[in-house]
Structure formats: C-alpha cells, structure tokens
C-alpha cells in the first residue's frame, strides 16, 4: 500500500514538474512564466522528499520559491509585464543545436529505460537513515565543511557589497553625489 502511495505521489510530482516546466517556456506572459516556475520548483521539492533529502527539499522551497522567485517577480514588475512575441525558433544554428540536444536527451532516456528493463540499474546506494536529514547536514557544516560554510558567507557578502556598489553608482556627473557624501 505504501508503495502504491509513493508511486502515486511520484507520478503527480513528476507530471506537475513536466507540465509546469513546459508552461515556463511556452507561456508568453513572463509573469505567468515566473508563477509556473514556482510550481516547477515545488514539484521538484516533492521529488527530493521522495529521495529522503528533506533538507534539500526545504531549502529548495525557502531559497528558490521564497527568495529567488520574489526577485524574478520584482524584475518582471520593474520591467513592466509586457508579453514578448512568441518565440519563432531562432536562427538556424540555434534550431540545429536544440535538435541535437533533444536527440541526445532521447538517447539518454532510451539507454536508462533499457538498463532498467534489463535489471542492470538495481544497484541501490547504501545510506544511513540520517542521510540528507537536516541534523546530518548541519553537523557537516560544523565539522567537515566548517571552512567551506564560512567562506560561503563571505562570498555572498562580497557579492552583495559589489551589487550595492554597482547599483548605487551615479550615472551622470554630480547626480546622487551630494546625497551620498552628506
């Protein structure tokens, strides 16, 4: 019974993922595109949960659906949510490249299905119950990856400072200068 439930959730999440992904690139209004991306990220979070990566699922929702999406929506609102002309396919080179990429993906899918069919893919990783749990990841932050964790905060800080500097630079001589100096 539990197995059926897992499959059911998997199908719902995977279907939602595909549908919302298709919506992101096919909807002409960028605002709806951004909203579809939220659904996309949420479905992905469900898949992460099924892979027992609870922390990743929560971070996915918090960071992407929470903050990155808000930023996207801000940009869309800032530029005015005007609809773009529907994509006409781009230059021939781009179309060829897209075709090649699509064929490569198809081959990959066929290979994976073939492997699964021949039972060559049943090599489950041995993981402990705590794998991917918030506690285990938090412990890694404080032990093995202590330095990397701290450096990440510096990298983010540097990026924020840089963004502020570029964003607040007056474009014309004199403009803003007095306000800033005051």
């Amino acid at each position: 019974m539990g197995d059926v439930l897992v499959w059911l959730i998997w199908f719902l999440a995977a279907g939602g993922l595909l549908a919302s992904g298709a919506a992101v690139v096919s909807v002409s209004n960028p605002f709806y595109s951004a909203l579809a991306l939220i659904a996309n990220l949420a479905s992905l979070a469900v898949l992460y949960l099924l892979l027992s990566a609870e922390f990743l699922a929560a971070a996915q929702v918090l960071v992407y659906a929470g903050s990155v999406m808000v930023m996207f929506l801000f940009v869309v609102a800032y530029l005015g949510g005007r609809a773009d002309a529907p994509w006409a396919g781009g230059p021939p080179l781009l179309r060829t490249a897209a075709l090649v990429a699509a064929i490569a993906l198809l081959v990959e899918v066929v290979v994976v299905l073939g492997l699964a069919w021949g039972d060559n893919l049943s090599d489950p990783a041995e993981i402990s119950a705590a794998f991917g749990s918030p506690g285990a990841i938090g412990e890694l932050f404080l032990t093995d990856h202590l330095l990397a964790f701290e450096i990440t905060s510096i990298v983010l800080l540097v990026a924020a400072v840089g963004g502020v500097i570029l964003g607040t630079t007056p474009r014309r001589r004199g403009e803003n200068e007095h306000r800033r100096e005051a």
Partner: peptide, 8 residues
C-alpha cells in the same frame, strides 16, 4: 570569492 570581486 575573488572572481565576484573582480567582476565588480
């Protein structure tokens, strides 16, 4: 870290 500083 250093690349982000250099971009700016």
């Amino acid at each position: 870290w250093f690349s982000l500083c250099l971009y700016v």
